[in-house]
Computed example of a mutant assay.
Amino acid sequence: MSRGNELKLSTKTRATTLSVALASTLALSACGASNETGNTGGGDSGSDGLSGTLVGAGASSQQAAMQGWAAGYSRVQPDVTVNYDPVGSGGGREQFLAGGTDFAGTDSALKEEELTEAAERCGDTGVFQLPNYISPIAVIYNLEGVDELNLSPATVAGIFDQKITTWNDPAIAADNPDATLPDQAITPVNRSDESGTTENFTEYLAAAAGGAWPHEPSGDWAVPGGEAAQGTSGVVSAVRAGNGSIGYADLSQAGNLGVANIRVGEEFVTPTPEAAAAVVENSESAGDEGEYNFAIELARDTTSSGEYPIVLISYHVGCIEYEDQETADLVKDFMSYVISEDGQQAAADAAGSAPISDGLREQAQSAIDAITAAA
C-alpha cells in the first residue's frame, strides 16, 4: 500500500517463554517459517532452511513478545539465531542508525533527523517502519487495601507532575467515591532511560489532560524528583517494592500489581488488548516520509466508549536494502513470521498484545516484499 493514501485503520483486520535478564542481551534461538505466505508465517525470501544470525536491539516493552516470536519461529528454522538486546527504544534506534544492528525495536517512530540518518545507513531506498506490536500502557500501582482504582486524565497528570502528593487527595477521591483511600504519600516512578514508553505516556498526558500536564511529550522524563528506574522491568520492580508507589509500564509486565482504570469520555476503561486495538483502529496514518514508513498518529484524546488511549505501538525498523543477501533474507523471513497470524498469536500468548489488523498486515507485507540486497 502506498504512503500516498491517508489510511483509516480497519478491522478487516496482535509459546514458550524464555527467561532473560533485561540488562543483558536477549539471545533467542529463532528461525523463519517456510517460504509460504499465510498463517504459518515465513516470508517470500525464496529460501527454505535459512541459517545465520540476525541482530536487533531496542524497546524493552517487546521483550516478552520477542520471546514468543522467537519460540514460534525456531520451530521451523532451528539454524537461525535472533539476538535481541532490550536496551530501550532510544538505544535501539541509535544502534541501528549507527549500523550496529540489523533492525531496531522502538516504541516511537523515527523522528525527522533520524530519518535523515537512516537514509545514510540504508541508502536511497530508505527504511521500513512496521507497527508490529500493539499493547496498552498500564498505570500500575501498589497501594495496600485498594484493589480497584479509577483515575481521570487530569488526575494521572497531577500525580506524575507531583502536584497530587497523597493518596487521599480530593482529586483521587472524586474519581473513587466508594474507595477508602489512605493518607499516604504517593511515590511516582518514571523511566530513567530514554524510552518510547515514556514518550507514548507523555503524548497521552499532553493530549488528554490539557493544562494539567504542562510538559512537551518526550522520551526523556521531564519532571525532576520522584523515583527513576531503568527499563520496563526496573519500573515494575520499583513499584512492587514500595507501598504507595505508582508507575507506567507495558500491560504485559504488570504482573500482580494494581492496574488503574482510566476515564475516557463518561466511563472508566480497563486496559485490555481489545480496548487498545479499538483506538488504533480509529487512528490515522502519520508516516509522511518514505514509501514504507507506516507510522500511526494515535487518537490519544478519544472519548469513544470501549477505547483505551494510553497505547503503545512498537515498531520494527530496518533497511529496505541490505548490503548482503543473507541479512536481507533473514530480515525478510523473520518479519514475515512476526506479522503472520501465527506470529501475532505467539506475541499475544507471551505478552498479552493485540493482534494487528489484516489491513496493517497487508501494509507491512508490501514493505517486507520490497526488502532486497545491494547489487
Rank of each mutant, 00 (worst) to 15 (best):
D349K: 07
F160L: 10
L28I: 14
Y315T: 03
A374M: 01
L149G: 07
S252F: 05
Q253N: 13
E291W: 05
Y133H: 12
D147I: 04
S285V: 00
V223E: 06
Y84E: 02
A370P: 15
D79V: 02
A206Y: 12
L50H: 11
L18H: 12
A254K: 02
P224K: 01
A173L: 12
G242T: 15
A212R: 02
A173K: 15
D329P: 05
S237C: 00
Q184E: 10
G343Y: 10
Q162Y: 09
I320W: 09
I356Q: 06
A157Q: 02
A185E: 15
Q230N: 06
A27V: 13
L50P: 07
T37K: 03
T302W: 05
L54I: 01
D161Y: 08
A209T: 10
G242H: 14
A154V: 10
G99I: 03
D183G: 12
A295L: 09
A118K: 12
T372D: 14
S233Q: 10
T53A: 01
F334S: 13
G52L: 00
F294I: 00
E203F: 05
E94M: 11
K111Q: 13
R93W: 05
R3Y: 09
L97K: 01
G56N: 00
D333I: 01
M335V: 01
D349V: 09
F268N: 06
V236M: 02
R191F: 15
T125M: 06
T25F: 11
G68N: 07
S353A: 11
A241P: 06
S45C: 13
Q129R: 00
D193Q: 08
I310W: 05
R3M: 11
P78L: 00
S357C: 08
T17F: 14
N39L: 03
G343R: 04
G242V: 11
L110G: 07
A286K: 11
D288A: 07
G32W: 10
V87C: 13
G306D: 00
E307R: 05
V264C: 09
G242E: 15
E112N: 14
A57K: 08
S336G: 13
I296N: 03
G123V: 00
G43S: 07
T270N: 01
S314A: 08
T272I: 01
D124I: 06
I186Y: 13
E36W: 09
Y141W: 13
P170A: 04
D175C: 02
L257Y: 11
E203P: 03
R263C: 06
I320Q: 08
S283P: 15
Q184G: 08
A23F: 10
V76R: 05
A138R: 04
A57L: 12
G225M: 02
P217F: 12
S245A: 15
G247C: 10
V280A: 01
G126Q: 05
A260D: 11
E291C: 02
E267P: 06
V264W: 00
E6H: 14
N168A: 04
F201D: 10
E113Q: 11
E326G: 05
F103G: 01
E120N: 13
A364E: 14
V76A: 12
V82Y: 15
